[in-house]
Amino acid sequence: MTVPFVDLKAQYLSIKPEVDAAIQHILDNTQFILGAEVAAFEKEFAEYCGAKHCMGVNNGTSALHLAMLAADIGAGDEVITTPFTFVASVAAIWYTGAKPVFVDIDPKTYLIDPAKIEAAITPKTKAILPVHLYGQACDMDAIMAIAKKHNLIVIEDACQAHGSEWNGKRVGGIGDLAAFSFYPGKNLGAYGEGGATTTNNDEYARKIRMLRDWGAEKKYQHVLKGYNMRLEGMQGAILRVKLKYLEKWTEARREAAKRYDALFAGSGVPTPYVSDKSRHVYHIYSTRTTKRQEWQDALNARGIQSGIHYPIAIHNLPAYADLGYKNGDFPHAEKAAAEQLSLPMFPELTAEMQAEVAAAVIELHKKDAGLAR
């Protein structure tokens, strides 16, 4: 049996008439950049996140970048974040001229460890950037308390966490600002690039709307030095259709995660740790092994796709060597980067597919355990 890592075509086919009609509507009205469909999506997604404002942009990296600029983060400032994330989280800090400052992760959740944040705060610290990795929310109660104590801004990187919650509050409406990606493979994915920033702050929202559109509130009246980071009308229309199904798809992911957990129970195969205060939306279902390449090769031979998120902690990447960190500085992040393996996870994943995946992974784990003895 072939088991894909993700199946975007299956999802499209399930909503094809609605998506095709939405695309045709854009072709008919020719509102290709921003426009009424984007504005409607922004309103609906803001409501979904429990936020006052949503500003659609061209991708998740821009959403992070503009969130920081709205908060006046720039040269001389420091932003505390995790070294175990996709590189965009850190690149967006660098774009502003600020310095990324890392703290290690909690080895159980892979998320930034709040207990380590205060030790990293200096007089230059301006913000904390928690990353809701794999679809699980960070401990936002602890992070918001630290931010309040030290007068810091909190920008949620929610690019993998559409619909995730911490202690009953949905991500995107907890921090001062939040960034989402609508890259096609995300839980809410566009058919191309897309992103959004959410906030409850009116001034932040006003500034981001200008910054994404050349710094102008009206055409040719440039108030700020801005960028071309607008969301396309086509993507706004498609995202409106898909947003209606997001909760259904999220529950399908959560059910699939429960099936994996049950299949792996008692086998010794590591499964995701989920805090009892978190609603995990399973963008990624992650296991780990010290023989990752061997596992991937063996799974591929059986027609089972897998992924790695992410193989090198950011501080060990050549591009960020100038930050001055070295291997060994963040051991939990480094160990996760060396061992993490992502198994197939998407709403249309069948129980039969999961049984095939689990049988293969358990077989590999038993083989490795036997060798260890």
Rank of each mutant, 00 (worst) to 15 (best):
G328E: 07
L211F: 02
L211R: 09
T271V: 15
C49G: 00
D213L: 11
F32P: 05
F182S: 02
V131E: 01
F102E: 08
E78M: 05
I80F: 08
H365W: 13
F86V: 14
I73W: 03
F86H: 15
T2L: 13
E232H: 15
S275I: 05
A319K: 15
P130L: 06
V241D: 00
G195Q: 08
G215T: 03
A88Q: 14
D261G: 04
F32T: 14
A10P: 00
G328M: 06
Q24L: 14
V241F: 00
N29V: 13
A338L: 05
A137G: 05
A369N: 11
A257G: 03
E118H: 08
A256L: 05
V101T: 12
K219C: 12
I105R: 08
D77Y: 03
K99T: 14
T30W: 11
T96E: 05
R373G: 11
V131Q: 07
T85W: 04
T109K: 05
K335G: 03
L231W: 01
M345D: 04
L152M: 08
A142W: 04
A237P: 03
E37Y: 07
D368V: 11
I312F: 01
P318W: 00
G175C: 07
E165P: 07
K291F: 12
A358L: 01
A265T: 06
W94M: 14
L177R: 10
Y110P: 11
M140C: 06
A216V: 08
E165C: 13
A92H: 04
H162D: 11
R240D: 04
A21E: 12
R373V: 14
L364D: 01
R288L: 10
